[in-house]
Amino acid sequence: MARVVIFGSLRAFTDGAGEMEIEAATTRELLKKLAARHPALAETIEAGVSLAIDGEVFKEAWFTPIGPDSEVVVIPLMVGG
């Protein structure tokens, strides 16, 4: 199962949980399961998040594969200049 890390201020919506394990083959599946487990996170996920999978940052890429031992860090959707 992938190890999911929630960045600091999002923990207010996960009852303080900073890390959890979720079984998911893709980012889309992972986000759906994350939102189901923590409904307060759903609004943030719907608005858009980036995911760092094993150190590589992906921006709303639903079908990115996630390995069984992957580390997935949920971070805000980023914008640039």
């Binding site: 960045f7 760092a52 150190g55 590589e56 940052v57 580390e71 860090v73 949920v74 971070i75």
Partner: peptide
């Protein structure tokens, strides 16, 4: 390095 914002650097 585990970065201060979460991801581990490549």
């Amino acid at each position: 390095t585990k970065s201060s914002y979460g991801p581990t650097f490549k």
